[in-house]
Design a protein around this nucleic acid. Structure first.
Lengths: 208, 208
DNA sequence: ACTTACAACTTAACGGTGTTAACTGCTACC
DNA sequence: GGTAGCAGTTAACACCGTTAAGTTGTAAGT
């Protein structure tokens, strides 16, 4: 045997952990299962991570990075800040729908009482926030949006989107309400909370 | 001893479970700990609940009822639908801040992959939704709000509020951003997503 | 070449978890 | 008085995260 896996054990652990997470869900994510899946002992994980929480934090960091990457890409080639804001919302929603378990792990820290998400990883997490902030500033300059405190508004935009997807993914929506319709409606409301009424009308006239 | 506790064991279990939840958090909520705190064996819990999830669902139901009660009270004696909507948002936020663990347990089903929240309990959970819906309809009739689909809008309102509190409680907010300012700003954005631009201005003129 | 040192990894064990099965004691009815 | 059944128990299972101690292989030092 002796597969001589060149890939460092740390990377193999992270990869295996993500596999288990995606296939079995966070609740059934155990160190023993991760270790078994790559043929090492569970305690080997402690050679590279301080704790299970530490490993999960790495998973969270990874998920955030993937989400951020998608967000970064989506704004390029959009002509107006309003279109950019819409693209950000759409991309965020799509990511959550396409990778629900990966998305949900990002916000795990809250409902579980996990070890606080370390602040050095926090920094990376804020990149998506910076993206929203840029778009908002752009919108303010062009008169399409009006914000007294754009740096706070960028966070609220974020938070509102999360709430919508959280409700969808936890299947708390009334069965009589169509999921896609709900999401679309919610995005409209959120966006319209950031756009001046006039420019919203303008945008619609141009569109149709 | 034989304390002859008249209170049914089921109620004592629920009460003890809530105590443990509030003091130790969801993550450290174990059946053995609950049982120990009221001097019975852990397996006794299974005489009244199908599983730990079943017990937690009961806790969720309780928390939702308490939140709903607060929401019901807050809208009375508010003259305008806008004021009512603001009151709902404020009350929701206050509840989450005052009872963070109780609040977070409500949305536990999502991030943890818990047994699906049973639909008969779901019905009660929708009472708060009904409250928002009423206010929205009232606002539409009086011309202060405009919604094509109020029954969906009621959900989106809800979802956005949850997102905001979720971000606050998971301590994902930049330390440089003031928490209360963030919440206030977020509520303003959410509300303004439901109110006609004109009536928002009117409201402000009257206020100040 | 032989020892030493260290890194990478393992096994064994601790105290905890949810859950099931089998057992006990009590109380109410015939 | 016997018995059915309820309310609770103990014992056990298979799992969990985590720690301590042990093993193995390899590279360096002399």
């Amino acid at each position: 045997m002796k597969e001589m896996n060149k890939q460092s054990l740390k990377l193999r652990i992270i990869s295996a952990a993500r596999d288990v997470l995606l296939s079995d869900g966070y609740r059934n994510l155990s160190l023993r299962k991760i270790a078994r899946s790559i043929g090492v002992s569970a305690t080997s994980i402690y050679l590279h991570f301080d704790s299970k929480d530490d490993l999960v934090h790495t998973l969270i960091e990874e998920a955030i990075e993937r989400l951020n990457r998608a967000l970064e890409i989506c704004v390029v080639n959009k002509e107006s800040p309003v279109k950019k804001l819409e693209a950000l919302a759409q991309t965020y929603v799509s990511f959550a729908l396409k990778h629900p378990r990966e998305y949900q792990v990002i916000y795990l820290v809250s409902s579980d009482e996990m070890t606080r998400y370390p602040k050095e990883k926090f920094r990376k997490a804020r990149k998506g926030y910076g993206l929203v902030l840029e778009v908002l500033k752009e919108g303010i300059n062009s008169g399409k949006m009006e914000e007294e405190k754009p740096n706070i508004a960028a966070y609220t935009f974020w938070a509102q989107l999360h709430g919508v997807m959280s409700v969808v993914l936890s299947e708390r929506l009334d069965r009589r309400i169509d999921q896609n319709e709900f999401i679309e409606e919610a995005i409209n409301h959120i966006i319209s909370g950031y756009i001046t009424h006039d420019s919203l009308k303008m945008e619609n006239i141009i569109d149709n």
